[in-house]
Design a protein around this nucleic acid. Sequence first.
DNA 1: CCGGTTTCTGAAAGCGGTTTCATTATATGC
DNA 2: GCATATAATGAAACCGCTTTCAGAAACCGG
Lengths: 376, 376
Amino acid sequence: MKNTATVQITTIHDVAKRAGVATATVSRVLNNTAPVSDSTRKIVQTAIDELNFVPSPNARKLSWGKTFTIACIVPFFTRPSFVERLRGIVGVFEDSDYDLIVYNVESAHRRAQYFNEVPRPDRCDGVIVVSMTPNDNDVNALKRFNLPVVLVDSHHPQFHSISEDSEEGAAKAVNHLIELGHNKIAFIGGPLKDTLNFEATSSARRLKGYKQALQNANIAFKDDYVCVDNNFAIGSKNGNTVKAFTLQLMHSNHPPTAIFAASDFQAMGVMQAARSVGLRVPEDLSVVGYDDIELAEHLSLTTINQSLRLSGERGATLLLETLSILSNESKKENISLSHQSFIDDYAEKVIHEKVPVDLVLRASTAPLLDRQHIVT
Amino acid sequence: MKNTATVQITTIHDVAKRAGVATATVSRVLNNTAPVSDSTRKIVQTAIDELNFVPSPNARKLSWGKTFTIACIVPFFTRPSFVERLRGIVGVFEDSDYDLIVYNVESAHRRAQYFNEVPRPDRCDGVIVVSMTPNDNDVNALKRFNLPVVLVDSHHPQFHSISEDSEEGAAKAVNHLIELGHNKIAFIGGPLKDTLNFEATSSARRLKGYKQALQNANIAFKDDYVCVDNNFAIGSKNGNTVKAFTLQLMHSNHPPTAIFAASDFQAMGVMQAARSVGLRVPEDLSVVGYDDIELAEHLSLTTINQSLRLSGERGATLLLETLSILSNESKKENISLSHQSFIDDYAEKVIHEKVPVDLVLRASTAPLLDRQHIVT
DNA sequence: CCGGTTTCTGAAAGCGGTTTCATTATATGC
DNA sequence: GCATATAATGAAACCGCTTTCAGAAACCGG
């Protein structure tokens, strides 16, 4: 059951033979790892070029004791925002020596499986976890082999993380509406508890920001104005709950004049529902979303940009940096003591980076009109 | 510059020592590759369990001469439909022994690089190419080492492929409109030539299907009704061309009563543009999209479902099948001659599978009304 | 022109598995 | 009951590359 390819690949031995040197020498010119005389180097290089030799990644990995791969554990298709995040991550590793393997979590079972099996030094050199807060088991699994870990879009005291401040973002959204004169502002969001990790979801944090903003503006919080779609998940075919919520809100005795949705996808549902009953956006109803996914621009949706792509980029970069620091650390040589201690410090410190959240003004929000006052 | 992990991983030697056997024996119980007495098997198994031993993937790969990884070359973020396709692919490999590495093509440079560097037996056991028709160079690169290759969403005589019939799909869309009584049907699509591979794009094929359908219905083809956005690409910030096209069409002397867009994303632009000037969809304008991406359902967009997910699944499965056939072939033993020849046939034959294209009826299309007749 | 570095290079020992080959123990046949 | 096939196991080679170790060659000051 050996390899099925019929054409043999040239190995370092072929090169060595052709160049009339030992494989060690070939390896040395390959990696610049020890002095090689110009003459032999040239000969070897010629042989390499002529044979079109590329060293076997696997052999290299085994020999180096590194995998040169990064594992990315991500609820791939259940988050509307993963594309952009992943794009950021992929972009960083494209130009590095590392391969990226994406582990897609779509069930609690897979989640546990991946957290247990993937973070091993013989499988990857580092781990990026996206949009999942590690629970106790996960933490143990992640720490077992001291692999560098970066959390993107989540937070844990023991691991580096890149995250956004959902509360701040939500507050910005709501403040914007308040500044436009709205005070009947509803919230529509997804589930507040995550079934995969039993943590507060971004919806929960955005709801918190929403409440905070209202409070700061001395606007009374109304339970009726909060709608939570516990089944909401991109990919599930139940986008209708949002529409039902919207209609319910707008047909109530005190219909809101503005709705803040915890995601652009939900905001889209809101806009559609509103329009389906003849309400104009933004004239009759202002809508703010969250995420600033591609869609938002096409919908002219005012929303909160949470730098999705950037968060991926930063996460990947941070992991790369950690990796390089660790590898420098392991060859403690020629390094001044002060520099060494700097590095130690750096390696010890857990870094929590926040990515900016910004209001993106588009055409789905407008000042509260007098007419609306009358309607209410 | 060795591995940075500080905790050592247990190896097969540890297990062997603990069980008091040779590593060969451990390997044998691990792989069921030769008879082992029940007693020793039990001892070894215990040692494995106690030490929590998992064989190093890398060592295994090197030894087997296989990589146990599949390379997937895909224009990741420039196609609106990649998510679903990838989802299908990922789902298949999750339960297999293979890792999936996704190579994201976003420039001609990367494209060439990946096609040249990736399809080597020391990097992967098989290749899935998504949404790109290989050019001559690519074909050479792909065939160099006789690696199994499957094309998803493209076609080439020399490689297995899973694709949809864009012409048929487009014809179904247009026929639907014709059946509703429309005869002023415009087409809005993306570029007809692909800058990455200089091949006809799906837009081009859909345009062809559009023309065909018109012709079959004896409706004269009008150049004015065809709008091609040469800059269209998801991710580029120029979704406005579609809107401009739409407005231009609707303000012309003979505005169409229906528009067929070559993708759902573009259809969304059409709907928005139409509504922005007070036109109702579908009452004043029928719109049909293509792809049936998630969005379509939320937009209540009538569209053509081209089984995106399924295409990924089938492609991945086909590759897996090919792989298993090849590996069986390589151990030509205990196989009846007839079965062997069947396998040979199968391995020789290039398989071209079509995935179904179906009209999905939603609320963006309606019968042509008399009122519209008058308007024109 | 000699001892002592420094530079360059090859042989060989890993990396962590698998597999061949040889050997011993057991089973089977007559 | 002995020759021979078969089952079970260990030692060692191997996958393709890196790296240590040690020796040879070149360099250098006196």
